[in-house]
């Protein structure tokens, strides 16, 4: 039996909105650690890893490890029916073929339950090695989203370069080219508005903007985003989920053959 009660139900709504464009079907894994997911996009270019730790739920019961295959578009449709202030409870029986989402309004005067069919999904679980990154950039998530959106109107790929001068996002297209440089800026009023660059070695990598733009659907989850880069390794774009966990997107670089 599985019963997970999340007081801030809007977090789950935002999580689904952030990943449903990238991944169609995925297995949600439930264990004593938490509610998690790992899935690749259909071209196997990007990977998303989600963790909502058990401590972040008001009530967390998971009698045995369970993997529940869900169509993310259908799950998002059901979660859209929850109010932003609603408490969401996820329920499932061991070996059952459905999952139930229960929504309670904050004043408890409206209680809904939506039952969704589960599906069998053959998914490969990848081992993600611990890596020392050459550079980690932390910046406002809205700024990163703006940069990805702006550059994608000029070109299809972005070159992200980190030097001691700052982080540079560059693109080229038929109509011209663009460069956006963000310098370290820690003297702002609020820490979430700072750009912090932690660089061990200069790094420069090329990525498809289409995927970067898809990752920025997670912007409502966190005021800040961290971008971890190492030469010739997938970039990690991480959005922390307040006191609960994270959504991490991994994207394979484009490499000169």
């Amino acid at each position: 039996m599985l019963e997970l009660r999340l007081v801030q139900g809007s977090l789950l709504k935002k999580v689904l909105e952030s990943i449903k464009e990238l991944v169609t079907d995925a297995n949600f894994d439930c264990s004593s650690t938490g509610f998690s997911l790992q899935a690749m996009d259909s071209s196997h270019v990007a990977l998303v890893a989600l963790l909502l730790r058990s401590e972040g739920f008001e009530h967390y019961r998971c009698d045995r490890n369970m993997s529940m295959g869900m169509n993310l578009n259908n799950m998002a449709k059901m979660l859209k029916c929850a109010g932003n202030d609603d408490i969401i409870t996820i329920k499932a029986d061991d070996g059952g073929d459905t999952v139930t989402f229960m929504f309670e309004s904050p004043t408890q005067d409206k209680i809904s339950d939506f039952e969704m069919k589960l599906m069998d999904i053959d998914s490969e679980h990848l081992g993600i090695p611990e890596a020392e990154y050459h550079a980690i950039v932390k910046m406002p998530s809205s700024e990163f989203a703006r940069i990805c959106r702006d550059l994608s109107s000029i070109g299809d790929t972005v070159v992200i370069s980190v030097t001691k001068e700052g982080v540079k996002f560059s693109t080229k297209g038929d109509i011209g080219s663009a460069n956006i440089v963000c310098r370290q800026n820690t003297s702002v009023d609020k820490p979430e508005e700072a750009t912090v660059i932690d660089m061990n070695e200069p790094v420069s990598l090329t990525f498809a903007l289409r995927y970067m733009n898809s990752f920025t659907k997670a912007t409502p989850l966190s005021n800040t985003v961290s971008i971890s880069l190492s030469n010739e390794l997938p970039v990690v774009v991480e959005y922390k989920i307040a006191e609960m966990g994270y959504v991490r997107f991994y994207l394979a670089p484009k490499i000169e053959e």
């Binding site: 690749m40 990007a46 490969e124 990848l126 090695p129 498809a208 997938p234 394979a252 484009k254 000169e256």
Partner: peptide
């Protein structure tokens, strides 16, 4: 020309 790599060439099945 830059070739798009796949994530599976960096991370292996666990």
């Amino acid at each position: 020309v830059n070739q798009q790599r796949q994530i599976t060439s960096f991370f292996t099945k666990s």
